[in-house]
Simulated assay, not measured.
Amino acid sequence: MIRISAVYANEHGSRFDTQYYQHRHEPFATDLLTPHGLLGLRTTLGEAALDGAAPPFWAISELLFASREVFDAALSHCGEALFADIINYTDVAPTLQVSVLGSDWNKGA
Rank of each mutant, 00 (worst) to 15 (best):
residue 80 E to L: 02
residue 108 G to L: 08
residue 40 G to L: 09
residue 46 G to L: 06
residue 65 F to C: 07
residue 65 F to L: 06
residue 70 V to I: 15
residue 27 P to A: 13
residue 79 G to N: 04
residue 59 A to Q: 04
residue 17 D to V: 00
residue 69 E to A: 13
residue 74 A to R: 11
residue 101 L to E: 08
residue 61 S to Y: 07
residue 50 L to S: 04
residue 109 A to G: 14
residue 100 V to Y: 02
residue 45 L to Y: 07
residue 93 A to R: 12
residue 109 A to T: 13
residue 2 I to E: 02
residue 87 I to E: 14
residue 23 H to Q: 06
residue 105 W to D: 13
residue 108 G to R: 07
residue 103 S to E: 09
residue 50 L to I: 02
residue 38 L to E: 02
residue 28 F to K: 01
residue 27 P to T: 14
residue 55 P to I: 01
residue 92 V to I: 12
residue 10 N to P: 03
residue 2 I to L: 08
residue 19 Q to D: 12
residue 30 T to Q: 13
residue 16 F to N: 02
residue 32 L to P: 11
residue 62 E to P: 02
residue 54 A to S: 06
residue 44 T to F: 10
residue 48 A to V: 00
residue 105 W to M: 12
residue 92 V to F: 07
residue 104 D to N: 08
residue 11 E to H: 09
residue 106 N to W: 11
residue 93 A to T: 15
residue 20 Y to N: 01
residue 70 V to N: 14
residue 107 K to N: 10
residue 13 G to L: 04
residue 29 A to Y: 02
residue 1 M to N: 01
residue 30 T to S: 13
residue 66 A to D: 15
residue 80 E to G: 07
residue 98 V to G: 00
residue 8 Y to K: 01
residue 85 D to N: 12
residue 57 F to V: 14
residue 18 T to L: 05
residue 66 A to S: 15
residue 96 L to C: 11
residue 63 L to Q: 13
residue 69 E to F: 02
residue 88 N to H: 11
residue 11 E to W: 03
residue 80 E to D: 14
residue 68 R to D: 14
residue 68 R to I: 09
residue 12 H to Q: 15
residue 7 V to Y: 06
residue 53 A to H: 07
residue 49 A to E: 09
residue 75 L to D: 14
residue 26 E to R: 07
residue 66 A to G: 13
residue 95 T to S: 10
residue 79 G to L: 11
residue 18 T to E: 10
residue 104 D to R: 04
residue 5 S to M: 13
residue 7 V to H: 08
residue 98 V to H: 00
residue 97 Q to V: 13
residue 41 L to S: 12
residue 80 E to K: 06
residue 86 I to W: 05
residue 94 P to S: 13
residue 83 F to G: 15
residue 27 P to M: 09
residue 53 A to T: 06
residue 4 I to A: 00
residue 5 S to A: 15
residue 68 R to W: 05
residue 79 G to E: 08
residue 3 R to I: 14
residue 88 N to R: 05
residue 36 H to C: 10
residue 84 A to D: 10
residue 17 D to H: 00
residue 77 H to P: 01
residue 1 M to W: 00
residue 20 Y to C: 01
residue 15 R to T: 01
residue 70 V to P: 14
residue 82 L to S: 08
residue 43 T to P: 06
residue 77 H to G: 00
residue 22 Q to D: 00
residue 2 I to V: 07
residue 60 I to S: 12
residue 39 L to S: 06
residue 105 W to L: 15
residue 27 P to Y: 11
residue 42 R to I: 03
residue 36 H to M: 08
residue 37 G to D: 08
residue 50 L to E: 04
residue 56 P to N: 07
residue 75 L to H: 14
residue 96 L to Q: 09
residue 106 N to Y: 11
residue 81 A to T: 06
residue 95 T to E: 10
residue 83 F to M: 15
residue 77 H to V: 10
residue 9 A to L: 09
residue 23 H to C: 03
residue 60 I to R: 10
residue 48 A to L: 02
residue 58 W to I: 00
residue 3 R to G: 14
residue 60 I to N: 14
residue 26 E to A: 15
residue 65 F to T: 07
residue 24 R to K: 10
residue 82 L to A: 11
residue 21 Y to W: 00
residue 36 H to N: 12
residue 59 A to C: 09
